[in-house]
Computed example of a mutant assay.
Amino acid sequence: MTYATVDAMKNKFGEQELIQLTDIEEPYQYAINMTRLNSAMNEANSEVDAYVGSRYSLPLQVIPPFLVNIACNLARYYAVTGDLTENDPIKARYETSIKTLHKISKGELTLGGSPAGESAPVQTANTVVFARGRRDFGGSGW
């Protein structure tokens, strides 16, 4: 699915930052390097699918805005080619986004905002079996 798009990236980070992230080789074009940006967005979108798809049927009927936000954070991180410091906001947003995706995949967070019945969690074959145990307190009951 497509969560991070060029328009979403521009809206979130601005065109100037996208140019700084992607136009990193001479001769500089002073424009967004679409090849580099598309590569980063594809990687981010597939990662979001991997986490969300482990819990929900894909494609989602409704894409929650926070998944777009998460994918944009991931794509921004993947577009960075240099080393990031430990306190870099790009790295911090990436790590927070990954933690959120992990919580979604474990069922600790849901994809809120979806209409009832849409984007329901994937049904698993987990089966619980209850067996009658011993009766330590006597015969017919209390």
Rank of each mutant, 00 (worst) to 15 (best):
T2P: 00
Y3C: 11
T5L: 01
T5C: 01
V6K: 13
A8M: 05
M9N: 00
K10W: 06
N11W: 06
Q16N: 11
L18Y: 06
Q20K: 08
Q20P: 09
T22H: 05
T22E: 01
T22L: 08
P27M: 02
P27L: 04
Y28E: 00
Q29C: 06
Y30S: 12
Y30E: 06
N33T: 04
M34F: 11
R36D: 09
N38M: 00
A40M: 01
M41K: 09
A44P: 10
A44Q: 06
Y51V: 06
S57H: 07
L58M: 07
L60R: 06
P65H: 03
A71T: 14
L74W: 03
A75L: 04
Y77A: 09
G82Y: 02
G82T: 05
G82H: 11
G82S: 14
D83Y: 13
E86Q: 05
E86F: 12
D88Y: 11
P89A: 03
P89S: 11
P89Y: 11
I90Y: 05
I90G: 04
A92M: 10
I98R: 00
I98V: 08
K99T: 03
H102R: 12
K103M: 03
I104R: 05
S105R: 03
G107P: 01
L109M: 13
S114R: 04
S114V: 08
P115V: 08
A116R: 13
E118D: 03
A120N: 14
A120C: 11
T124W: 02
T124I: 15
V128N: 15
F130M: 14
A131S: 15
A131P: 15
G133S: 12
G133K: 13
R134Y: 14
R134Q: 12
R135T: 07
D136P: 15
G138D: 09
G139C: 10
S140W: 14
W142F: 11
